[in-house]
Design a protein around this nucleic acid. Structure first.
Length: 748
DNA sequence: AAATGTGGAATTTTT
DNA sequence: TTCCACATTT
């Protein structure tokens, strides 16, 4: 079929886009045009009249990916996409549960707990039930609950072999009861509840199965067990499942992502007459050849892969640059030097990504960049909707919708301070517990006498007044009203650091406005549905919920950016995890040291190093043109200087691809005498190799090899001549003192 | 209710 | 070291 839609697709992409109505697994390597294939596939299905937009379900992991898919799709097709199910797993489950809240046994206006809210709820339950938070750390329970739910397990399904698990199951059950009473659901619950709805309600399940002729899944390697089961439930005899993923980029196993889903796909989605098609997209449109060679060679060291080799029609490009710095400080300075050179050559700063394994590494880098007056942006950290003042405002709004929400109640009952102290709260909680009611009901029931009672009563009046006042307002007007009437604005005006918080509260008003415009919800819809409103019969209908509830769900499901983008272009600093999906002209992968990258904790985890290697693979494949790999021989971590040997990943990249900007190894040094003194590696700006002034045979921070103990790093030394001894931190054998005279050490 | 002190932990985190 | 949560002061 001739169509501009299919122009310039390579043969594999074309095959994927125009596959017949059957399930397929698309192994899409980094930079292989995965999103393009996904969106073009949908556009092609629509253009050829094979399916109506309502017959498509496209699911992603991030809101960003979902939004991008919609935007690109809108540019590819004239078809009106309204009502099409495109979104994140959580977003789609939310949508489904709103539509069938009764069948799912949820209140129509159920609220969504983010991880913060969830932890607060757990702590509250602990207090109510006198649970020892030392023996059962709240975070551990939080993890336990999420993990259980992601395996589809309710408290009575969890196998409790040991005492600790038995207790955790009890606490999980208490948590569930509280959630149900307050009408709140956490992230994992959205999925599990939706899964159970489909599993138990045949009519609903069949309705969706008939409807979705095509289900398309992005980043399939990141699906967890429950998401996979959810997809299987949704897929009927008539459904073509189109899963796109890359097992080599699976870096979220620690959160339950299950790469095995890719292996099972063929078995589980094949039908008698329609086998599963497997297509590999291996042509890379992002990077030069050398960078791909480095990535390919590295990832070949992994055993657990489906197998794939990226190639490009572009040239080899520049070599990979490697640099070893004596300290993390020098590593940062090297990066500053190189960046300044690149900037001088005209490279935009935002085309440069500086990646690290863990967030703690950003500090030194930031420090150096700041001193050099280089603008940078750090990804990660507090997101907009997670900020305390924003959460406070949202809590007021939540109370308007669902006063049963104890979490919201507790968050703002005395914020800004209004004389409802710990004592009054305790009374309220006692009363609520003994009556089996929520705090709001206890507050309304006048559980407290005296002055505190008056304060509580006035809080109740405040909320009710706000509800009445906002009933006829637009969403953003209501948000603004909540900001003011709650006293939040006035409160922060008095605080010396309150200006930014007030700005964020004002930004929340804008966010509400923008949300309504983007979500395309009826602008003049009432703030809250009337109590007798019936649920939408057609789950496809947008705006099945009121604007406020939709906005609150949005705030929970899309936490927003970490910080507003700055005007001028800035360097991009982030963890390797958050770099997934992005690309940069130039990439620095920093901290390539054993213990850091691969992280030491990964060594004890099953297949941990393989996941670290995939992470390294992701890091390398972010680079389009230029790649720097840097390492520090010593690094300040947790308040102490640590000496690490070079990352094994450094050695897994073919030497021929690498240009060393520092001395890679010291060979053929005199080994019969130990002389101490700091050896100084002199890094210069980008380009030319630097020299190392090296007087002594051995020095602290040096990598060495021992015939029995293996590789390690010298971390301390004493004595001279025949008495010289060094302390070596071996990778596998631990820390040992060795006499140089006897121990046959070699430079490693 | 703010201010100050203390102890413990410190990969990664799309929702 | 540095950050955070939590407890204790003032």
């Amino acid at each position: 079929m001739a169509s501009p839609l299919l122009d310039r697709l390579n043969p594999e992409q074309l095959a994927a886009v125009t596959l017949p109505h059957a399930s397929a697994l698309i192994l899409a390597g980094a930079g292989s045009g995965k999103t393009r294939v996904l969106t073009t596939r949908i556009a092609w299905l629509l253009a050829t009249g094979q399916v109506h937009p309502l017959g498509i379900l496209a699911v992603t992991f991030t809101n960003k990916a979902a939004k991008e898919m919609l935007t690109r799709l809108a540019a590819l097709t004239p078809v009106n996409l309204r009502g099409m199910w495109v979104g994140t797993f959580h977003g789609l489950c939310n949508r489904m549960l709103r539509a069938h809240h009764r069948a799912a046994n949820l209140p129509q206006l159920f609220q969504i707990l983010d991880t913060q809210d969830q932890l607060a709820l757990i702590k509250r339950i602990y207090r109510d039930h006198n649970i020892d938070d030392e023996r059962y750390p709240p975070r551990q329970l939080q993890w336990f609950i999420a993990d259980s739910k992601e395996q589809g397990l309710r408290p009575n399904n969890v196998e409790a072999g040991d005492d600790l698990t038995r207790r955790q199951v009890e606490h999980y059950a208490l948590y569930e009861t509280a959630c149900q009473r307050e009408g709140v659901v956490d992230f994992a619950e959205l999925l599990l509840r939706s899964y159970e709805l489909l599993a138990s309600q045949e009519a609903i399940r069949e309705n969706y199965r008939r409807r979705f002729a095509h289900i398309l899944v992005d980043e399939f390697q990141d699906t967890n067990i429950l998401q996979y089961k959810w997809l299987r439930l949704l897929a009927g005899a008539n459904t073509a499942m189109f899963a796109v993923g890359d097992d080599d980029q699976s870096i979220y196993a620690f959160r339950g992502a299950n790469v095995a889903n890719m292996q099972h796909f063929e078995r589980d989605f094949a039908t008698a007459e329609r086998p599963v098609t497997l297509i590999k997209l291996e042509q890379n449109y992002r990077s030069h050849g050398t960078i791909l060679d480095a990535a390919n060679t590295l990832i070949k060291n992994n055993q657990l892969r489906l197998g794939k080799n990226l190639w490009t029609s572009e040239g080899a490009g520049e070599p990979v640059r490697a640099f070893v710095a004596p300290t993390d400080f020098d590593e940062a300075r090297f990066i500053v030097d190189v960046v300044q050179g690149l900037a001088q050559d005209g490279l935009a700063l935002d085309a440069i990504g500086i990646l690290y394994r863990s967030n703690a590494q950003s500090r030194v880098l930031e420090h150096a960049l700041f001193n050099a007056a280089l603008p940078y942006r750090v990804y990660g950290g507090m997101r907009f909707f997670e900020r305390a003042e924003v959460k406070h405002a949202l809590a007021y709004l939540r109370l308007l919708a669902t006063p049963e929400d104890d979490g919201a109640f507790l968050r703002v009952v005395n914020f800004p301070p209004r004389g409802i102290g710990a004592r009054s709260l305790e009374q309220l909680q006692d009363s609520a517990r003994s009556q089996g009611t929520t705090l709001w009901q206890a507050a309304c029931g006048g559980a407290i006498a005296g002055k505190s009672g008056a304060a509580v009563a006035s809080f109740v009046r405040l909320i009710e007044g706000m509800r009445a006042a906002t009933a006829s307002m637009s969403l953003s007007e209501a948000v603004e009203h909540a900001n003011e009437a709650s006293g939040l604005i006035a409160h922060y005006r008095q605080e010396k650091d309150g200006r930014e918080r007030i700005e964020n509260l004002e930004e929340l008003v804008n966010a509400a406005d923008a949300f309504l415009r983007e979500a395309d919800l009826a602008v003049d819809a009432p703030m809250l549905p009337s109590s007798d409103s019936t649920p939408a019969t057609d789950p496809a209908v947008e705006g099945a919920t009121d604007p406020l509830t939709a906005f609150l769900a949005h705030a929970a499901l899309e936490a927003g950016d970490t910080q507003a983008a700055e005007g001028r272009p800035a360097l991009q600093l982030m963890t390797v995890h958050s770099a997934k999906g992005l690309e940069f002209h130039t990439v620095f992968v920093t901290g390539l040291e054993e213990g850091l990258f691969p992280h030491e904790n990964s060594l004890n985890e099953a297949d941990g190093v393989e996941e670290e290697r995939r992470l390294m693979y992701v890091a390398i494949t972010r680079a389009r043109r230029r790649l720097y790999l840097t390492q520090a021989q010593s690094r300040m971590l947790h308040g102490q200087t640590r000496f690490n040997i070079p990352s094994r990943f450094m050695a897994e990249i073919p030497r021929g691809l690498v240009e060393w900007l520092s001395q890679p190894r010291r060979r053929g040094l005199e080994v019969d005498r130990a002389e101490w003194g700091n050896s100084v590696a002199i890094g210069n700006s980008h380009g030319a190799p630097s020299r190392v002034s090296q007087k002594s045979a051995w020095h602290i921070g040096q990598s060495v090899k021992h015939s029995k103990f293996g590789v390690g790093v010298i971390i301390d030394a004493e004595g001279r001549g025949d008495d010289a001894r060094v302390q070596v931190n071996f990778r596998d054998a631990g820390v040992k003192w060795l006499a140089l005279e006897y121990a046959k050490l070699e430079p490693a």
